[in-house]
Design a protein around this nucleic acid. Structure first.
Lengths: 337, 337
DNA sequence: GCAACGACCGTAAACGTTTACGGAAACTAT
DNA sequence: ATAGTTTCCGTAAACGTTTACGGTCGTTGC
């Protein structure tokens, strides 16, 4: 089946009527519509994407931008896959499709985004891995492309965002550690310019301040947001003459390497050093079990999609969700702290 | 910048010339071309995707189909992200873009693929998570869409594929275990209809057969390809009156849960039970370290892309790669076996 | 019996590109 | 100077849709 032309010829009606029938327009005989629908189904006709979006000016595609490469943005495992699934449950209601826009590690993210939005590839965009200052926000704003970011940034063009509650996480983690008697506390700051690192570390610092505790510079460990990064931190800690009695971190991927490195140095997590982190499918099967924060990624995806739709003129009527949401997380106690 | 029309008006040339200049056609004055290129750059003009692909009949987009949801096909996110990155290094040479086609867990994969190819979304497709019998192969063949699959299937329409050497993995693992004196050997068969499970388990069986060892039915453990799946297997093993002395598995995500479940039961991996698996960024930081097979995902991605291109008429001249490749893996020794 | 109306459908323009074609200069060879 | 050739560029058709517009026919109301 090539196009609507063939389908129309086959049915001996005009392409206009066929199109109206398929798109659920009013001005078409129910019986005719039925015939068209059946024939389309039987012949496997689906409207050509290019023709359709050229005429309509919209594509029906939502893009989720992410960077590829061995070191992703500090999320591990099935983080994105779960979020996607949540997003899709909402988009499906409007026959919108989700695709992942994959920016290669060798390409500049800003340039990549520029290119894809100028091409008119997607009607709206979901951004992740937001940086401290993120030019992508301004770019999308300039192009008037609806978008939402999973993550805040200092750059603010008034777009909606949803971000994990890293500050609440810092609050809860620090309070907990202080209450348990810790005074020498370390935090891991994920490398790169991701905004969440600033949010987390700054808040940790101020909470500790309020307790009259100093977050010492040498207790702020910079690390690649990966297993290897966690391992490197562990080695660094082990090499110290004196070390923090507790450590807090925000990237779930770090934990595995951190555990390993500490154990190799004879420092037992949960016993010789307390660890508070983020949960993932992986972390709940580590030994000792992790004390960390968890959330429903599926629900997060749903919220992302709903907020995005409410920023899109054609769909906003159906949604009036919060413009910006700080997504709460639950502290799940484990053996590590 | 709206379209080529505006750009042409701005330069006071015809749109035909502008298009030719942008697309590197021969019939255009170098000086004119220069002007066009500069103006396009300055005004941020990029050809509209829909118009372009409507006219050309091709989109310049390669789709990588994958299923979303918390339980993906036994690979973690980082698996695909690394492969993507390899694919992109090749595609970039031809200004082809890679996008991930995300099939929701609530949608039938065959129907999803049918829909997206009929729309003409991508010029070619990379398939993953190949099933024992996979209708998607026939569908793409029927539509004459070039594609390659990461994984074999009983369904064969002559398309290229690349698959990890699960049989070689079975050979090496079984030989190693037998040589170490194991006679009661268990294997984990990932749930679902993925073809790799059949390949691996059948080969394990026949290798053991050749040594006069029986792969007992109760030693074939079915498990969801996830951490939780591994944990469940561990519990099952622990509940046995007699248990295998070694266990081999193919999904890297299983290991974490397996370790945890065994340890909870007082069965020490590498000491009380030998484990051979697959490496991932995670597994090298487990304790005890895993004995398992590893490969370069980036290179795998490169090979995938090259084989795919050689199946695409417009690019095949530049590539003559092997039609089908069984991708070798290296056994990296660890403490678990 | 006539006007008015509604239900349904066909026609054609438009979306933004690319490219085959032809034509106008400028140049070369005789 | 003329014919032939090359270089460059403009024109217009085509890709597959959607949709505004108008037309035909049958029905209704008087």
């Amino acid at each position: 089946m090539k196009g609507i032309r063939q389908l129309a010829d086959h049915l001996d009606i005009s392409i206009g009527t066929v199109s109206r029938a398929l798109n659920g327009k009013a001005d078409v005989n129910p019986q005719t519509r039925q015939r068209v629908l059946e024939a389309a189904e039987k012949l496997g006709y689906v409207a050509n994407q290019s023709g359709r979006s050229l005429r309509k000016g919209s594509t029906g595609v939502i893009g989720f931008m992410m960077q590829t490469g061995p070191e992703i943005t500090g999320q591990g495992d099935t983080f994105f896959m779960s979020v996607f699934d949540g997003v899709q449950t909402v988009l499906a209601r409007h026959s919108l499709d989700l695709v992942a826009l994959l920016c290669s590690s060798s390409e500049d993210p800003d340039a990549y985004l520029q290119r894809t939005v100028a091409r008119g590839f997607a009607d709206a965009i979901i951004l992740s891995a937001t940086r401290r200052n993120d030019a992508r926000f301004e770019l999308l704003d300039r192009h008037k492309i609806p978008f939402i970011s999973l993550g805040r940034s200092l750059t603010d063009v008034g777009q909606p965002w949803i971000d994990l509650d890293f500050e609440g996480m810092a609050d809860a983690a620090m309070e907990r550690l202080v209450r348990a008697g810790h005074r020498e506390i370390g935090v891991i700051w994920p490398d790169g310019d991701l905004n969440l690192g600033y949010l987390f570390v700054e808040r940790c610092r101020s909470v500790l301040d309020a307790h009259g505790i100093l977050l010492r510079e040498e207790n702020i460990f910079r690390a690649k947001p990966s297993e290897a990064g966690g391992y490197a931190v562990a080695k660094e800690i082990a090499a110290r003459p004196t070390r923090p009695s507790a450590i807090a971190l925000v990237n779930e991927t770090l934990v595995t390497g951190l555990y390993k490195g500490l154990e190799e140095a004879g420092i037992r997590p949960g016993k010789d050093i307390v660890i508070v982190g983020r949960h993932s499918p992986h972390t709940q099967f580590l030994s000792p079990t992790l004390t960390g924060f968890s959330l429903s990624l599926h629900d997060l995806g749903i919220a992302l999609a709903e907020s995005l739709l409410s920023a899109m003129p054609s769909y906003s009527h159906a949604y009036h969700t919060a413009h910006r949401t700080v997504w709460p997380m639950d502290l799940v106690e484990g053996e590590s702290g």
